[in-house]
Amino acid sequence: MQISAPFDYARATSVDDAIALLDRLGEESRLIAGGHSLLPMMKLRLARPEALIDINELAELDYIREDGAEVRIGAMTRHYELIESPVLQRLFPIFADAGRVIADPLVRNRGTIGGSLCQADPGEDLTAVCIVLDAVAVLRGPKGERTLTMPEFHRGPYETAAEHNEVLVELRVPVRPRSGSAYEKVERRVGDYAVAASGAAVSLAEDGTVAEIGIGLAAVGLDDRPAEAEAVLRGRAPSEELVAEAARLTAEATEPIDDLRGTAAYKRHLASELTRRVILRAIARAKGQER
């Protein structure tokens, strides 16, 4: 029987209450949202927090709102809501693409976008999605709120810029005209973490050239966007050849490792092929040619 070490339990009644609890309970306390990463780690005693602060009751963090030139996503938005949201389906189909390949429907009923981003598992999908979309993370702590770009927020595997007494409260995603996005993942079996995964977002200028492009990958050792690959397409008419070249450069920028999920060579191959596909799909969606 897998049972975690003992811990004190407190239920936060508001974000400010959660921040106060983090301060009072100290460095060995942790927030718990969906709990589908933290609880398994606690059951294996890989994590032994002295106190858990449950933020599942914070309905104030559970929303998806269109707000002028951006969409605001509350940190407690659960994975199934990312898939089902009509706003995200219309503006950022990449969320549904990625959501559908996160674990399984039962896990997605509990897991949250904030939890995924804060856990920062290297095989996790939503960090790449947020990087691709140029999202901004809003953190709230005792001194108020601060906003960080994804490269500022996401520092690498299992590490973010969030201080101990800060709560990730919101993701803000800019809405761009004539844009499309897509995500594709290869997994060993349904519900597993990615062998490799790639996401892309493209917005087109009125003349059909690429105005802006974002590429992001999961599980292949690439935390930042591949600038060189993106530069190949930015400002150009996106031919299949250019897209393939951008995909090739993306794969070159990755640093995958050999592990049980595959060899580094295989993962690099996937990085190239999946990137090629998602860029083409993002372009097709930007043109309204594909859902």
């Binding site: 609880l39 429907p105 009923n109 509990r110």
Partner: peptide, 17 residues
Amino acid sequence: LDGRPVKSCTVLAVMAD
């Protein structure tokens, strides 16, 4: 849990309060 299926080995009973 509130009508949605969840894996009860990965939910604390206190979360269902």
